[in-house]
């Protein structure tokens, strides 16, 4: 009898472990819908700093949802959006401590230009993604390609880490 009970408990433990493993696997492939309240970083109207606005995002890939929420723009009228119209996130994934995000060409084509504009665009994305666990820096790609720069000022040939001086 004891043998049977012991076997049952063992099976239960294995069962639980297997379920956990399966969920972990599924989560990796972004099939589970998750929800999180995050800080979205938008620009101040003098184009000097980034300020945050809280929002709850929901979806299978929270990195993508966070960036999509940034693309939608702020609700606060004292803040300005940092990503131009029509931009789509083509791909976003985490490798070690770096998030690689691939944007559609609208992020260049529809951009207003200027160092001020470009810094705010780039850092709003970096800071928003850096708040996720284990994310230290962000590498930008455009239409699947590595790029020198976004609109001619920032060095995007390497991943970028958050810049505390630009946050108010």
């Amino acid at each position: 009898m004891k043998n049977k009970l012991f076997k049952l408990i063992l099976l239960l433990i294995i069962f639980v472990l297997v379920i956990f493993a399966v969920y972990y696997f599924i989560d990796r492939t972004n099939l589970i819908v998750k929800e999180k309240t995050v800080n979205l970083y938008f620009a101040t109207t003098d184009a000097m700093y980034l300020e945050t606005e809280e929002r709850t995002i929901k979806g299978r890939n929270l990195y993508k949802e966070a960036v999509n929420a940034l693309i939608t723009g702020p609700t606060d009228s004292d803040l300005a959006k940092t990503i131009p119209e029509g931009v789509k996130v083509l791909n976003i994934s985490k490798k070690n401590d770096t998030i690689r995000v691939d944007f559609s060409e609208e992020i260049v084509k529809n951009h207003w230009g200027g160092s001020a504009g470009e810094r705010l665009t780039v850092y709003s994305i970096v800071h928003t993604l850096a708040q996720f666990k284990g994310v230290k820096q962000v590498k930008f790609l455009i239409e699947g390609e590595e790029v020198e720069t976004l609109v001619g000022h920032m060095d995007l040939s390497v991943p970028l880490a958050p810049n505390q001086e630009i946050v108010k």
Partner: peptide, 10 residues
């Protein structure tokens, strides 16, 4: 260079 941002007050 010369600058630009999304808001015309900058």
């Amino acid at each position: 260079h010369n600058n630009s941002s999304s808001k015309n007050t900058s």
